[in-house]
Computed example of a mutant assay.
Amino acid sequence: MKHRYGLIAILFIIILFVQSASSYVYGETSPEDTQAILQKTLSIVEIDHEIKRISEQQTQLAKQHETLSAQLLQQEKEIHIQQDRAGAVVRSYYTGERDSLLMTVLGARSFKDLFVLYDYYQIIIGKDQAVLDKYQTRYNELQHTSDRIRQTSMELTQMKTNLENQRTRVALLQKEVDKQITASGDAAAIQKLMNELTLYWENVGIYEVKRYFKALASAMQNLPDFVQKQNGAISTTGTTYTIRIAQDELNTFLRSQNEIFNDFAFTFDSNKITASGKRDQLQLSIEGHYTVENEPQNSIRFHVDRLVFNQLELPDTTRNMLEKEFDLGFYPQKILSFVKATDVSTDEGVLEVKLAISF
């Protein structure tokens, strides 16, 4: 199966070259036009997947909203019962019923009667407290469910907007592609290229891209240990700590983690990180940057700004999906437990993280 899709990839490249070159000679479709069509085709495929993901999430969230609404109705019934019971307890204290009970205990004629009456008093007071505690618990549950319903309602509204936006986006892209195909003068050849690209991407490309991201996410889990063992990687000035990682050191580390990185390399430039490589018929380039994040915990988070597969740039929906699915960040507190990251930057060949003592 892999051999079959390897041949598809080779044929795709050959067809792209031959078709683009010949069309350009006859003044019909330039290589740039063909590239643009394929770029949009890949974007349409990926945005269609995003629409499917959003639709599935919307369905799940709608079911959750329905379940929460049913829970809220049940909790409202239960809290009315607890409210009546709690009200009766409060009234008994307000009207002095419990005071008279206490006076009865204190008026016991013997120590034996005192202990028996006190035990009864403790039981009654304990039940009163249990009623009040149960009311408080039910009230908290009711508030929590109400908050979750409000949250899911907002998320459903946002998802509906996202879905409409992505559908509009796909429709516009498809309209542009159809127009360019018609103007190409060789619609059949262009359509064949589009079909081959889609087939290769959905059966090989996306899985290969995810394979790299998965390997990176796995390697980043071991980065703190690597940094601790590097002489001079951590320096201190007063209460400020600094971690410096050279790109060559990072590449050596990655290749020690997984042989997939033998043909893959990171480069650090001013506020930009590029990771690129080529293996067999796959070319992959990832551009991004790091930021300091404090939620849900202090970390150095990697953001994918640009993702290029076989010279075709993937849309933001794919970048966002990969960011959510694979954690390419790292956590300084795994290196020094008493610090937190305050700043991160990259310059030519070096990644630098500033740390401060966390009180």
Rank of each mutant, 00 (worst) to 15 (best):
residue 131 V to N: 03
residue 134 K to W: 02
residue 166 Q to M: 10
residue 206 I to M: 09
residue 215 A to S: 13
residue 106 L to W: 06
residue 144 H to Q: 13
residue 203 N to K: 14
residue 134 K to L: 11
residue 121 Y to M: 09
residue 120 Y to K: 15
residue 212 Y to V: 15
residue 134 K to F: 06
residue 219 A to C: 14
residue 182 T to E: 07
residue 132 L to W: 07
residue 108 A to T: 07
residue 160 K to H: 12
residue 127 K to T: 08
residue 136 Q to N: 12
residue 115 F to A: 11
residue 217 A to G: 10
residue 167 R to W: 04
residue 195 N to D: 07
residue 108 A to N: 04
residue 182 T to H: 05
residue 199 L to I: 08
residue 147 D to P: 00
residue 187 A to L: 03
residue 104 T to C: 02
residue 142 L to V: 03
residue 156 L to C: 03
residue 175 K to I: 00
residue 143 Q to C: 05
residue 113 D to S: 12
residue 146 S to A: 15
residue 135 Y to G: 00
residue 122 Q to V: 11
residue 114 L to P: 01
residue 190 I to N: 00
residue 124 I to F: 07
residue 188 A to R: 12
residue 121 Y to V: 05
residue 192 K to V: 02
residue 122 Q to L: 15
residue 166 Q to D: 13
residue 190 I to D: 00
residue 192 K to T: 09
residue 141 E to A: 11
residue 136 Q to K: 14
residue 156 L to H: 03
residue 130 A to Y: 08
residue 146 S to T: 15
residue 136 Q to D: 10
residue 175 K to R: 12
residue 203 N to A: 11
residue 176 E to T: 07
residue 208 E to R: 11
residue 118 Y to G: 02
residue 196 E to K: 03
residue 140 N to A: 14
residue 201 W to H: 05
residue 157 T to K: 15
residue 128 D to L: 05
residue 174 Q to R: 09
residue 134 K to P: 00
residue 133 D to L: 15
residue 115 F to C: 08
residue 148 R to M: 14
residue 118 Y to L: 14
